[in-house]
């Protein structure tokens, strides 16, 4: 049984000018203890995907398709049932540790709150919170449980956020751009911590990032999200051996240092989710696009190595 199995996930946000189609049929899966990076530009729908997995999409959003977590269907089960999945089943680290921690509650209480909700006594929950904080490198001897978030640095706050998830012993941890808001010097440390914890605890990890290099270093599998579609996915080694989708290539080229590129920005803009062109959403920006690309969405076709690409003209296959 997969830890997470997402099939044909669609998400529409209501808007006065017509629904905004954020996710348009996303398929994903993570095996128990496995890890997956979802990569894409801002606006691709990554964060919304992460929130939807927890059932925390904005009020009034229309979700269709299937999300099976630990074998249980999560779409359309209502908030009351979904609440039982959150925390122990699936937990999430948010992008901004500044806003994600309650400024008027001590870090100890915030970390202990999850276990307390699961019926643990006050003392036991507090002890568990201390352990969790120690494991993320905030030893209660130096960082007492009654500190408030504003007394910590950005990187330390993100560690608290990770401890907060850890204390609930989730089977799947979602991390949404966990280092984007942090100083460059502490980013590597937080990422290493996430990877070590996921491996050590046997937690599944779903990492949302805009950075292909982070994905390459962190997870077993990657999925590239573009305008609400998965356009390329597969085992990390196979995907990076041959970046096949023109968008993935452009993304790699846009990042200095990877793929020998010097940081070439991708021309054009992602189509607005309000106004979806037919065919491949990348076609308007793609040097390889032809009439077929503009008329018809290419299916996600998998090769023998599990590397799948949604492109009529992928790189590295006889071209």
């Amino acid at each position: 049984m997969s830890l997470l199995e997402v099939r044909g996930l669609r998400l529409d946000l209501p808007a006065p000018s017509g629904a905004i189609r954020v996710l348009r049929g996303v398929d994903l899966s993570i095996e128990p203890g496995g890890s997956l990076a979802v990569v894409g530009e801002s606006g691709a729908g990554k964060s919304m995907l992460a929130l939807t997995l927890l059932g925390l999409q904005p009020e009034g959003a229309d979700v269709r398709g299937s999300i099976r977590l630990l074998g249980r269907e999560c779409v359309g089960i209502g908030d009351r049932a979904m609440r039982r999945m959150r925390g122990g089943g699936i937990a999430m680290v948010f992008q901004e540790p500044q806003g994600a921690l309650n400024p008027v509650m001590t870090i100890g209480r915030q970390v202990a709150e999850g276990p307390r909700r699961r019926g643990l006594g006050r003392g036991a929950a507090r002890a568990l919170a201390g352990e969790a904080l120690a494991r993320v490198g905030l030893d209660p001897a130096r960082y007492p449980l009654d500190l408030y978030p504003h007394q910590l640095s950005g990187g330390q706050r993100q560690r608290v956020m990770i401890a907060l998830c850890l204390a609930m012993r989730p089977k799947l941890l979602v991390a949404d751009e966990p280092t984007t808001a942090l100083d460059a010097t502490v980013q590597a440390g937080v990422l290493a911590l996430l990877r070590d914890l996921a491996e050590g605890e046997g937690m599944g990890l779903l990492l949302v990032t805009h950075d292909l290099a982070v994905a390459a270093a962190m997870t077993e599998r990657v999925a590239v999200l573009y305008a609400g579609h998965i356009v390329e996915t597969g085992p990390t080694a196979a995907v990076f051996a041959r970046l096949a989708h023109p968008y993935t290539r452009a993304l790699a080229a846009a990042r200095p240092g990877l793929d020998g590129g010097g940081g070439v920005p991708i021309g054009g803009r992602m189509p607005s989710p309000r106004n979806v062109p037919p065919g491949c959403p990348f076609a308007p920006r793609c040097p390889r696009a032809d009439d077929r690309c503009r008329a018809e969405m290419p299916p996600l076709a998998a090769g023998a190595d599990g590397h799948a690409v949604a492109c009529f003209h992928p790189h590295g296959r006889g071209t």
Binding site: D79, R83, R86, N102, E113
Partner: peptide, 29 residues
């Protein structure tokens, strides 16, 4: 609108509990 309310709900708190335990103490200021 703050993210900590989302964090609270991520922990499994109901909307009401998130409002009562997290949003209200901040709103009291």
């Amino acid at each position: 609108h703050q993210d900590y309310v989302l964090t609270a709900r991520m922990k499994g708190l109901s909307k009401g509990a998130a409002l009562w335990r997290h949003a209200l103490p901040n709103a009291l200021i």
